[in-house]
Amino acid sequence: MPGNVEAARIYRECSGQWRTAGMAGTRIDLDITAVKIVMDLEEVQDQRECLSKVRDIARIVLETKNAES
């Protein structure tokens, strides 16, 4: 559970850092470079696990956003 809280905190800090495509600015994925920087600043110990969880959160957000469109 603590790892989930950590991943949620990192996602929240990076939630404005999306890679986009096309003229409409369609969200593609989180900017992983931004995620890495935040994880470094927050001194995340297991960055691979945290990144995986952050990407899972981002995927859920994208799926939800696409379902609403």
Rank of each mutant, 00 (worst) to 15 (best):
P2L: 07
P2M: 07
P2R: 09
N4P: 01
N4H: 08
V5L: 07
V5S: 03
E6I: 12
E6G: 00
E6W: 00
A7S: 12
A7C: 05
A8M: 03
R9I: 08
R9C: 03
R9E: 11
I10Q: 01
I10L: 04
Y11F: 15
R12W: 05
R12F: 06
E13S: 13
E13I: 09
E13K: 14
S15I: 09
S15D: 12
G16F: 02
G16P: 00
G16D: 08
G16N: 08
Q17L: 13
W18V: 10
W18L: 09
W18G: 11
R19D: 05
T20C: 05
T20F: 06
A21L: 13
A21Y: 11
G22A: 06
G22C: 07
M23V: 04
A24F: 10
A24P: 00
A24E: 07
A24S: 11
G25Y: 06
G25E: 04
T26N: 03
T26G: 03
T26S: 06
T26R: 10
T26Q: 07
I28C: 11
I28Q: 14
I28R: 14
D29I: 06
L30K: 02
L30Q: 06
D31Q: 08
D31M: 07
I32P: 00
I32M: 01
I32E: 02
I32Y: 00
T33D: 08
A34M: 11
A34P: 04
V35P: 05
V35T: 09
V35Y: 03
K36F: 07
K36W: 07
I37F: 00
I37P: 00
V38E: 02
V38H: 00
M39G: 01
M39K: 01
L41F: 04
L41C: 10
L41G: 15
E42H: 12
E42L: 13
E42W: 09
E43F: 14
E43P: 02
V44F: 08
V44K: 03
V44M: 08
Q45G: 06
Q45D: 15
Q45H: 12
Q45V: 15
D46W: 10
D46S: 15
D46I: 13
D46K: 15
Q47E: 14
Q47L: 09
Q47H: 12
Q47I: 13
R48C: 12
R48D: 15
R48V: 15
E49Y: 03
E49A: 13
C50M: 13
C50W: 06
L51P: 09
L51R: 15
S52R: 14
S52Y: 11
K53T: 09
K53V: 02
K53A: 11
K53S: 10
K53I: 07
V54F: 05
V54A: 02
R55D: 03
R55H: 03
D56W: 01
I57W: 04
I57G: 01
I57H: 02
A58P: 07
A58C: 10
A58G: 12
R59N: 08
R59V: 09
V61Q: 07
L62T: 03
L62P: 03
L62E: 01
E63D: 08
E63W: 12
T64G: 08
T64C: 05
T64N: 10
T64L: 09
K65A: 15
K65P: 01
K65F: 14
K65I: 14
N66P: 01
N66F: 11
N66C: 06
A67Y: 05
A67G: 04
A67S: 11
A67W: 04
A67P: 01
E68F: 10
E68I: 14
E68S: 14
E68C: 10
S69L: 15
S69C: 12
S69H: 15
